[in-house]
Design a protein around this nucleic acid. Sequence first.
DNA 1: CTGAAAGCGCTAACAA
DNA 2: TTGTTAGCGCTTTCAG
Lengths: 340, 340
Amino acid sequence: MNTTIKDIAQACGVSTATVSLALSGKKGRVSAEMTARIQETAARLNYTPNRAAVSLATRRTKLVGVLMSDLRNTHIAELFMAIEEVLQSRGYTLICHVLDDKSMDTGRISSELIGLGVEGILYAQPMFLDPDEAFFRMRDFFNSAGVPIICNDEVGLTCAGMDVMFDFYRAGYIATKHLIENGHQVIGCVSGPANYRVSEQRLRGYRDALEECGLGYDPKLVFYGDYSTAGAEPALSYLLGQRATAVFAFNDEMAFAIYRSAHQYGLSIPQDISVVGCDNVPFCNVLEVPLSTVHVPTVEMGREMAESLIMYIEGHAGKKRSQHIYEPALMLRGSVHRRA
Amino acid sequence: MNTTIKDIAQACGVSTATVSLALSGKKGRVSAEMTARIQETAARLNYTPNRAAVSLATRRTKLVGVLMSDLRNTHIAELFMAIEEVLQSRGYTLICHVLDDKSMDTGRISSELIGLGVEGILYAQPMFLDPDEAFFRMRDFFNSAGVPIICNDEVGLTCAGMDVMFDFYRAGYIATKHLIENGHQVIGCVSGPANYRVSEQRLRGYRDALEECGLGYDPKLVFYGDYSTAGAEPALSYLLGQRATAVFAFNDEMAFAIYRSAHQYGLSIPQDISVVGCDNVPFCNVLEVPLSTVHVPTVEMGREMAESLIMYIEGHAGKKRSQHIYEPALMLRGSVHRRA
DNA sequence: CTGAAAGCGCTAACAA
DNA sequence: TTGTTAGCGCTTTCAG
């Protein structure tokens, strides 16, 4: 059995109320000597407050739910670590869930979070263009949960919280533009799943850049992957068949697949095929030919998500939803070749 | 305010005790009709038990603490996801901590875990050869926490739990042997930090293989990195200076750095330099020349850690510590060249 | 089969 | 400055 406030009270010959007061640092409520004695015995007895009891009495849990997608993607892992660090340092405890598309068991998760009494939720999941039943249930749950919710996209929430987003449209636009400016006329792209909003945004950016430059948009030039390296394996072969000389991959992981296939076909980057990625994960620099890519300020975004959640929880941010859209920046490295 | 057992009791005109009984499925204690009615109103009222209250009353929390190291390492991310999946599916809630070497704030973490009343702990951290103060405090805490603890190494615990380990000694041995058998005589290695036990184990394997084959061990042939790609950046240049024709990198991330540098120097793998890694992260297959590496069954190990923790928690595994050591297997791919 | 009552560990009025 | 009292929401004897 752990030591309780009662043990301390006994040891010091006072009431539990006094101990509680003394320990919670409400200054002026308990005499200095008594406070000292209580703190000392608490330390000696190795006292740690029982959080279940505290929550029950105060209705505060200091718990927050964090819903992430696949952490094997370095970009996601970094986001998570940034979030974790901030939350932890501010005394919050993370209840972590990794949701892979398939098993988004919204019912179980939401009642777990409710039951635990989380004070806020961080939702870092892709937004679908064709949301299913489960999504809407999740969203309804969020909207009625009565706690602030931070998302990494605009998912249609009306509750307190913030959408910390990234301008993927512009990312697609500047990446493509860069390729065009380097003389490429047939530019393929490796998209993520067609029903992810972040895919559609990049695709629109890609398309607008092409059309604006009079190159026209050809749906045959888009290969649909799944943001993983493995899923983008066939992309290059396909796009080469469409006579592309350059490729914009919607994330770095898929750009890596292009590298791989290029090598297999004996093609070299950027001489034979130019490529631009997106995310700017550390690995870009580790490739034989460093990957030119669109920088996503992952760590900053993670920190802002966490910090803003805390602001809302602690009531310093009102009840309204807010938004912050980060702008992309191109990282020029070695994977784009200038054509005559 | 969330709906409570009391609301249901009122709605059904019974006492809270009856509701509790009915809802917790103790069959035979409450009449079938009553049970049905209670369950139904519970559902209608969207009732979710308050876990703080439940824990307080039952002294069970269904919480487990998970202490991980840097998730940007794919191998760690995979381990974590495997753990998460099992724990989640068995109804446990994860309290997640990412500890980077520096900020291992053992005091705060251990009292957090105690305060929350975790029923078990999963500790996936590197073991040091020269443990510091903080480590011993952590270990003392573990030993006296009264809950089972699962580790990914033997850290000297005496409490209930399991050490789910990997035979890194043999990993080092077979990797090096493979290089020797391919005719290499000067084999460098890229170690992790010298004070990590897993580094020392691999190093011993490397050394024994060399000596056994009469090649002798030369400390100049070991470059010390930090298991990250960036930290291994200077490795190749250094080892080339020592006339190495092959390199055993203690993990894949560092092997990737060798690839990178090789390219910079205009060397090709494996013709100019052979390399073997360790872990077998998915990325190995994505390189232009797939990396030959030692397979570590990360997912299986993660699952076993989680499952064994549950066994212990639920009392199906006794009070003694157990152990499982996984054996390495070499994945032969394209990064090793046979010398005449 | 159901209810009353006590208690898990802590906090928060309100009194003294 | 300190103690008394009453819960927070749930489980669990023990009676009825």
